[in-house]
């Protein structure tokens, strides 16, 4: 179980982080000491019961929150704040509604001429299957298309890491599945390191190389599962179903 060993190397090193919040005069411990490592190009899925502190955890890893104790290292540097090196894709989405698809994708590009930026933006728009929608505004797109824009906007800045916080939870089951397949197809080409937070065990099994199961609050890593199956994965295969049962039983189901 390589993820539980502290001190090993990896692209992302999470070292015994703890986080609590003041609540009603008392203290609410949310993250109760978590350590793991994520290798370069690895997709690590983190599943846990709702309200267990998954989102707090990924906010800390991405640099948006400070841990009370412990630290996060990204490429051997202590994570002090968010940067374009690791882009967050969240459930609610943050595609700017006042910019067109192309402008959204160009937003994070700080180098090159306007034309070069637009070309790069359009390339990634096509990559997520939205060719022809470059000049559309977000309110003219469906939920699934918006999610594609968000993924494209993240990828266009060539981040090394993607932090995905329940990325597809707001979508219907079919669109969820479709976008997972799209994401895998894209990751195949671009080899990003991914930290994926989800409450959907099947989603985690579909995408991850390794799955961490979190305990209820204050959350800790309760179990770690390798998912050694090649892509494309058949979710109904007996091996995956067995793994699913094991993970669900860790979650008390």
């Amino acid at each position: 179980m390589r993820g539980e060993a502290v001190g090993i190397t990896g692209r992302i090193l999470v070292r015994d982080i703890k986080k609590g919040f003041a609540k009603d005069g008392g203290r609410l411990d949310v993250v109760g000491g978590i350590s793991f490592a994520v290798d370069d190009g690895e997709i690590v899925g983190i599943v846990g019961p709702s309200g267990c502190g998954k989102s707090t955890l990924i906010r800390i890893i991405a640099g948006f929150d400070r841990p009370d104790e412990g630290q996060v290292l990204v490429d051997d540097l202590v994570q002090k704040g968010p940067s374009a090196k690791g882009i967050v894709i969240s459930q609610q989405g943050s595609v700017f509604p006042w910019l067109t698809v192309r402008q959204n994708l160009m937003f994070g590009l700080n180098q090159g001429s306007e034309r070069e930026k637009a070309e790069l933006a359009d390339h990634y728009t096509a990559l997520v299957g939205l060719k022809g929608f470059e000049k559309s505004y977000p309110h003219e797109l469906s939920g699934g298309m918006l999610k594609r824009v968000e993924i494209a906007r993240a990828l266009v800045v060539k981040p090394e890491i993607l932090y995905m916080d329940e990325p597809f939870s707001a979508l219907d089951a079919l669109m969820n599945l479709r976008l997972r397949i799209e994401l895998l197809r894209i990751l195949e080409k671009e080899r990003h390191t991914v930290v994926l937070i989800t409450h959907d065990v099947e989603e985690a099994l579909h995408l991850s190389d390794r799955i961490l199961v979190l305990s209820p609050r204050p959350t800790r890593i309760q179990a770690t599962f390798e998912v050694p199956f090649p892509h494309p994965r058949k979710l109904t295969s007996p091996e995956i179903q067995t793994l699913k049962s094991s993970i669900l039983s860790e979650l008390g189901i």
């Binding site: 948006f64 940067s83 882009i87 609610q92 943050s94 937003f107 994070g108 700080n110």
Partner: peptide
């Protein structure tokens, strides 16, 4: 907040933050 955080995530300049996020928002 999600828009301001996205802008922070992409690490853009203050001028760009203002021109492309705060003002249009």
């Amino acid at each position: 907040q999600r828009y301001l955080q996205a802008a922070e995530n992409f690490g853009v300049s203050r001028a760009k933050l203002f021109r492309q996020v705060v003002f249009p928002a």
